[in-house]
Simulated scan of single mutants.
Amino acid sequence: MAMISLFLIFLLHAVTVVTADLRPGFYRSTCPDAESIVRAVMKRALIREPRSVASVMRFQFHDCFVNGCDASMLLDDTPTMLGEKLALSNINSLRSYEVIDEVKEELEKTCPGVVSCADIIIMAARDAVALTGGPDWEVRLGRLDSLNASQEDSNNIMPSPRANASALIDLFKRFNLSIKDLVALSGSHSIGQARCFSIMFRLYNQSGSGKPDPTIEPCFRQKLNKLCPLNVDQNITGDLDATPRLFDNQYFKDLVAGRGFLNSDQTLFTFPYTRGYVQLYSTDQSLFFKDFVNGMLKLGELQSGRPGEVRKNCRVVNGQSDDLMLE
């Protein structure tokens, strides 16, 4: 933990909030249909597989926390670079990359070389929320795509499902995100699913006790035991809240009732500094929506200031695909 903390302190010098180049309507003159194209593809993805839009929404978190919002997480591995897709928090967890590929393909047909993959992630995350019943908001755009990725950085920064509220507060604080931001943004788990892998320790060996997490409501624990028995394929998934296809405040109601799926979620209610916000959002959905939007805007402003480009293919830096074909 000490080593991770030192890394995060170092990282704070590399990732800052830079808003001068980000603004609403950034593509109004260069690609006026950009946002409508992204939303149309997200609508199709929602119809094909409802879970996919929740998966895409998570990209903003996994991208922006690791060296800023620069689409580094979309880069495939190369012979000289280990990308972030196989990082500990991403492997067998992040999915639906093909939705971003589809968005990029549509945008390249309409306005080639204009809309960055980093901005696509931001727009798609917003659309995932809006299309499932949550708030809609005006996004600030104008990001560039990174020229590299770092599996090591992702491993060091992204929290695990075992993380508790105290560790999450520490992480968010280093990015100038408040306790309120942490709880509101955790509401992203209002939609989607997570794997049995992420909760096996809660069910059978919490804190090395050989017993289940005592904070899990008994009937809910029985349900989870049936979903995730000891011999289960740990890639089996369960709903993150009782309304996994609807973006609402049910997630917080579930936490109050002891029905949080992930340890990192349930501790938001058991930890004194976060408990009040959980209770507040469980009774005031409008306030949750307002604070969630503010948190997403703040998260989307994390930038590294490193050189970048607008990738033609979100999986590779420009020119790289041609180089690999020649090898």
Rank of each mutant, 00 (worst) to 15 (best):
A2K: 15
A2T: 13
S5M: 15
F7N: 04
L11Q: 15
H13G: 12
A14L: 15
V18T: 12
A20I: 07
D21C: 09
L22D: 03
F26G: 00
R28F: 04
E35S: 12
V38E: 00
A40D: 09
M42D: 06
R44K: 13
P50E: 06
V53H: 14
Q60A: 13
D70H: 09
D76M: 14
D76N: 14
D77I: 03
D77F: 00
E84I: 01
A87P: 08
N90C: 03
S93G: 02
R95W: 10
G113S: 10
A128H: 01
W137E: 01
G142L: 12
L147G: 10
D153V: 12
P161R: 08
P161N: 07
A165W: 05
D170I: 04
R174G: 05
Q193F: 14
R195M: 14
F197C: 09
Q206A: 02
S209F: 03
S209Y: 04
I236D: 05
D239Q: 11
D239F: 02
D241F: 05
R245I: 07
D254G: 10
G260N: 00
Q266M: 02
T267W: 09
Y277G: 00
L287D: 02
L287R: 15
F289G: 04
K290S: 06
G295F: 06
K298I: 08
L299M: 02
G300P: 05
E301P: 13
Q303S: 15
G305I: 11
G308K: 05
G308V: 10
V316A: 08
L324K: 12
L326Y: 08
